[in-house]
Design a protein around this nucleic acid. Structure first.
Length: 502
RNA sequence: GGUCCUUUGGCCGAGUGGCUUAGGCAAAGCUCUGCAAAAGCUUCUACAGCGGUUCGAAUCCGCUAGGGACCUCCA
């Protein structure tokens, strides 16, 4: 089965065929580093990390570009929505770039916690002012943008006359053009008066004197509009046509719609073959976002320091939680749901550790052919499900089907010759590839170290001796006190004991 | 107001025409165990409501009700 991807642009699942065989260009809208990343931000970066990893698994050479939006270039500049970066900088008395650096570092830290692969290129908006200016000049020269009072706007009406503006987001162009006249749109958008049409969007904004972040341009001092950075940087690093563009669903309009318009004018063709959009993480059914005042920052997730959290959550728990739902579904956050994922991941990972240590026999003809073929089928479905628009939840479900079998093999409840050696080997290989390489999960309990292991072994030996002498007071003392320290003791059927962090 | 999406068992969450009682968590019982834990087994069989299409629908269509997203910065 070939990889199928749901294309937001056509609203259909399509067979994935890269533009250049063997290579994939992928652009994902990165964070605006004017504040701390929250749980909602984790969704796209983890989802597209898995996309990247899976494409790599499929032997594609992927160039993964994810930008850092570090220029305060917010299209709307009303009373509140002035350049967020510079505004906050004044409050915190920091240089804008100092603030940007701080949150960029924090973002990178979080990505590392999540075990996200670093993008091939991580361009910054401030590092590509020149490219953006050149692109804007190009759009002006082609007649699709106009300058007013030092600002430049994209002429949506003119573009829409010959192009399909609104197709990606399902907007109706007449309504967009008419938006300025509707009575329900009472917002006072800055620059609305100087725009020819309400639907026009800014390519370059003139900076008022107090605006700290500013660059020289042919139109005077200012800063780039919101959408142009992605067009400029995607074109620079991936070319006029590239394979995948990802981002959150909330970016469909106006951001991605505008990106298409800009790039189409400059490059004479639609920029992206497959548009992918992840859905939102909700909290009590409502999107997590600054505007709703319901965000849980990642630092709060990892520390448990938030009223809605009953405990701290490991980054891997969050990652697993996200992978347990499909990237195009909304995912409702709750502390209980996270706790459930935490336990589930532990169970799955424990089984995986057991699997890794199972000896591969030389069984060629399994005594339980039915079980053997069931397992084979579940394993084969790993790739089939992933090929179907990255169906990670179904892969995980299959892993849970296999987990009890692994444990039963270990405990001797299922004899080793029940399944063939090749099937067992395939289990080991598939679990490794999908759990670690594709899903990017890692061992949560990596506290094992050279000092601790021998000490634990010593304690377990003492406990074993005590048990042999029926000195249960001592053996229970060891077990109970270790439990209090957060270390679980597990006795198996053969009298062997293993331990793990709770 | 416009456009679009969504509604699954105690909770989270897959699944889109007929056989997945998906899976996880929780709960209960059992096995194992010195007792536990872990593990294994078993039970808990849902698809908002109404109508339609069909031999057959959670799955397609319509209506009703609830929820949500976008239309403005937003992952």
């Amino acid at each position: 089965m070939a990889l199928h991807i749901y294309n937001s642009y056509t609203r259909k699942k399509e067979i994935f065929e890269s533009i250049t065989p063997g290579y994939v260009g992928m652009y994902v809208c990165g964070p605006t580093v004017s504040g701390e990343s929250h749980l909602g931000h984790a969704r796209p970066y983890i989802s597209f990390d898995v996309v990247y990893r899976y494409l790599t698994y499929k032997k594609y050479k992927v160039r993964y570009v994810r930008n850092i939006t570090d220029a305060g270039h917010f299209e709307e500049e009303g009373k509140e929505a002035e350049d967020k970066v510079s505004k906050k900088a004044q409050i915190e008395k920091l240089e804008p770039m100092e603030l940007v650096q701080k949150y960029t570092n924090l973002f990178h830290w979080a990505m590392k916690q999540f075990n996200c692969v670093e993008p091939s290129i991580e361009p910054t908006a401030t590092g590509h002012i020149v490219e953006q200016i050149v692109m804007i000049e190009d759009i002006i020269s082609k007649g699709y943008a106009y300058e007013v009072n030092g600002s430049v706007y994209f002429d949506v009406k003119k573009y829409a006359a010959s192009h399909d503006y609104g197709k990606l987001s399902g907007r109706v162009i007449d309504e967009l053009l008419d938006a300025g006249n509707r009575e329900d749109v009472s917002r006072e958008l800055d620059g609305q008066q100087e725009k020819r049409e309400a639907a026009d969007f800014a390519l370059w904004k003139a900076a008022p004197p107090e605006h700290i972040m500013r660059w020289k341009s042919p139109w005077g001092d200012g800063f780039p509009g919101w959408h142009i950075e992605c067009s400029a940087m995607a074109t620079k690093y991936l070319g006029s046509n590239f394979d995948i563009h990802g981002g959150g669903m909330d970016l469909l309009f106006p951001h991605h719609e505008s990106e298409i318009a800009q790039s189409t004018i400059c490059n004479h063709s639609a920029p992206v073959k497959y548009w992918m959009h992840n859905n939102m993480i909700t909290i009590n059914g409502r999107k997590m976002g600054k505007s709703y005042n319901n965000v849980i920052k990642l630092t709060e997730m990892f520390s448990g320091n938030h009223p809605l959290l009953t405990q701290a959550f490991h980054p891997m728990t969050v990652r697993f939680f996200i992978l347990q739902s499909h990237y195009r579904s909304t995912l409702d956050f709750s502390s209980d749901a996270l706790s459930a994922s935490e336990k589930a991941l532990k169970r799955l990972w424990d089984a995986y550790e057991v699997l890794k240590n199972l000896p591969v026999s030389n069984t060629t003809s399994p005594t339980d052919a039915e079980l053997d073929s069931k397992i084979t089928n579940w394993l084969n479905e790993f790739e089939i499900f992933m090929d179907d628009d990255f169906g990670s939840p179904r892969v995980i479900a299959n892993m849970f089907e296999i987990a009890p079998i692994i444990n039963s093999l270990k405990d001797g409840l299922i004899p080793f010759d029940a399944i063939s050696a090749s099937t067992l080997q395939k289990m080991k290989d598939s679990f490794h590839v999908f759990l670690e390489d594709v899903f990017g999960l890692t061992n949560v309990n990596d506290q094992n170290n050279e000092l601790l292991n021998p000490i634990m072994q010593l304690l377990l030996d003492i406990r074993k001796e005590a048990k042999a002498n029926k000195d249960f007071a001592t053996s229970d003392k060891i077990r109970n006190q270790l439990t209090q320290l957060g270390i679980l003791i597990k006795d198996d059927k053969e009298g062997n004991t293993t331990w793990g962090v709770a």
